[in-house]
């Protein structure tokens, strides 16, 4: 079972905490909304930290069903 990072820009409130936690993976567009700089990034502690602190629930980890 592998986990995958899910990002939902429609939910993002632009708090930017993800960018603070892991700037290599997360960025913000002109409107402050989250963007992802790398496809399927390895889930390091900084990403887990970003997911845990994201105040809007825009970031989540999902089991992608693969073995």
């Amino acid at each position: 079972m592998t986990e995958r990072l899910l990002v939902d820009p429609d939910v993002c409130i632009g708090a930017g905490l993800c960018v603070v936690a892991q700037p290599r993976v997360f960025d913000q567009d002109e409107d402050g909304i989250v963007t992802v700089r790398v496809e399927s990034p390895p889930l390091d502690d900084d990403i887990r930290q970003a997911v845990a602190t994201c105040p809007s629930g825009a970031l989540s980890l999902r089991d992608d069903g693969s073995p």
Binding site: I13, G14, G16, V19, V20, P23, Q28, E30, D31, G32, I33
Partner: peptide, 15 residues
């Protein structure tokens, strides 16, 4: 709330 907040978020990005 979302509509009004989104007009502001671009002003407070980390960048």
């Amino acid at each position: 709330h979302t509509r009004l907040r989104r007009t502001l978020t671009g002003e407070f990005t980390v960048r």
